[in-house]
């Protein structure tokens, strides 16, 4: 089974996040990279980490897949401007929301949950996203 549709969906998500001007770095991988390999100028940084995938429905040669993607985002803030985190969350949500098909690459992209997990001065916000895309199975 080819993974091309999954990779296309993830690439589409990366392109969407690349277009968020307030994000300095967008990294796609299968695990979170060590933060000590990045400079402060690389922040805000967001990682795209696919986790679980399951079928919403399936037919003989055609599946609708649901892929859960965890996106931890890190940014430096001195704590005097509490709006920066809110602005970043809003920018990411707006970008996903303005075209939930991610340019026609997925059936649906959604931000499912957002949680704050960081502490001063390096704040962490974790987006949990869901990508739904149709997958054809050529060699049944």
């Amino acid at each position: 089974m080819a993974d091309s549709q999954r990779l296309q969906a993830l690439a589409a998500l990366q392109s969407a996040l690349d277009a968020v001007s307030s994000l300095a770095t967008v990294e796609h991988g299968y695990e979170e990279q060590e933060l000590s390999t990045y400079d402060d100028t690389d922040t805000p940084i967001i990682f795209i980490i696919p986790t679980t995938e399951n079928y919403v429905w399936e037919k003989s040669m055609h599946h609708l897949c649901s892929l859960t993607v965890v996106c931890p985002m890190y940014f430096l803030d001195d704590g005097t401007d509490a709006q920066q985190g809110e602005a970043l969350i809003q920018a990411v949500r707006n970008k996903i929301g303005e075209d939930i098909t991610l340019g026609g690459k997925v059936a649906e992209a959604r931000v499912m949950s957002i949680s704050f997990a960081g502490t001063f001065p390096l704040w962490k916000v974790v987006f949990t996203m869901r990508l739904r895309y149709e997958k054809r199975i050529d060699n049944v």
Partner: peptide, 9 residues
């Protein structure tokens, strides 16, 4: 504690 490559707590 290295937070980022050039930021140390």
């Amino acid at each position: 504690k290295t937070l980022l490559r050039n930021v140390i707590d």
